[in-house]
């Protein structure tokens, strides 16, 4: 079985990468999970996952005659992690449509694929993970611009045949009146509120330590919220072979 989720927000700074890894680790308690840094222009998952020094990344895979996907898969924290390099020349050389084949290959051998997506909707490569995924997890802060961009992500997803798995409210402070805001927001999102993750210094601490939150502070309130979100996701059964085929024949043409 396999289901691919894009973790997306449309806006920077909402904590997508932290959320991707945290959801991944929480889901890994029940599933075989692969996390891919699909934000190829502004990759940062490698720093969060303690993979800053690795030699082969997604950039090396998605170039003409590149490395096999397996060379960029690292087993960390109970997950298979595919980091992406931060070198801009690597990004320039990358062919984003090859991401489709990467996801197809990974899908053959995992239960859940999480695609950490770009914080923008302005380019083809940024939107591609949303196109490839079965469902999108929309990460928002309880602010007007973040909610507005979250809604745009959902519209893009819907337009490209991708469903909304739910909304994750991140960096929520005590005084954000989230108990009033979340139900109002839910009226516009196709999926439920997966969890509200409190703002905390622990998250920054984890990032500085180069560790995923659930490894750094597994009992923190934020970590608990992510586990709750993972439980709400109810991963769907899919036939790996069929999913892999679907990715291979995805709607993206070979050339730009």
């Amino acid at each position: 079985m396999v289901e691919a989720f894009a973790v997306a927000s449309g806006k920077g700074g909402t904590g997508k990468t932290t959320s991707t890894l945290a959801l991944g680790m929480a889901l890994a308690e029940d599933y075989d999970v692969t996390v891919v840094d699909a934000d190829m222009g502004m990759a940062n998952l490698l720093f969060h996952a303690g993979l800053a020094d690795v030699e082969t990344t997604l950039h090396d895979v998605v170039v003409e005659g590149g490395a096999p996907v397996e060379a960029a898969v690292y087993e960390r924290h109970g997950l298979s992690v595919v980091p992406c390099g931060t070198d801009l020349s690597g990004f320039a050389a990358a062919d984003p449509t090859r991401l489709r084949d990467v996801v197809a290959t990974l899908a053959a051998d995992t239960d859940v694929v999480l695609l950490d997506s770009a914080a923008t909707l302005s380019s083809r490569s940024a939107v591609l993970p949303i196109v490839l995924a079965d469902r999108v997890v929309v990460v928002v802060e309880p602010t007007i611009p973040a909610l507005s961009d979250g809604l745009k992500v959902q519209e893009y997803a819907t337009s490209y045949g991708t469903e909304t798995a739910g909304v994750l409210f991140n960096k929520v402070r005590d005084d954000d009146a989230i108990d009033r805001i979340a139900p109002k927001a839910e009226r516009y999102f196709e999926g439920p509120t997966l969890a509200t993750v409190p703002a905390s210094d622990t998250v920054r601490g984890a990032r500085r330590a180069g560790q995923p939150l659930l490894a750094y502070a597994p009992e923190s309130a934020a970590a608990r919220a992510y586990r709750e979100a993972a439980r709400s996701l109810s991963v769907r059964e899919g036939d790996s072979g069929a999913v892999a085929d679907r990715f291979r024949s995805a709607v993206v043409p070979e050339s730009l």
Binding site: I144, A177, I181
Partner: peptide, 10 residues
Amino acid sequence: SASAVEAFLD
């Protein structure tokens, strides 16, 4: 601030 977000959602 929260009320501005609520007004937006309304």
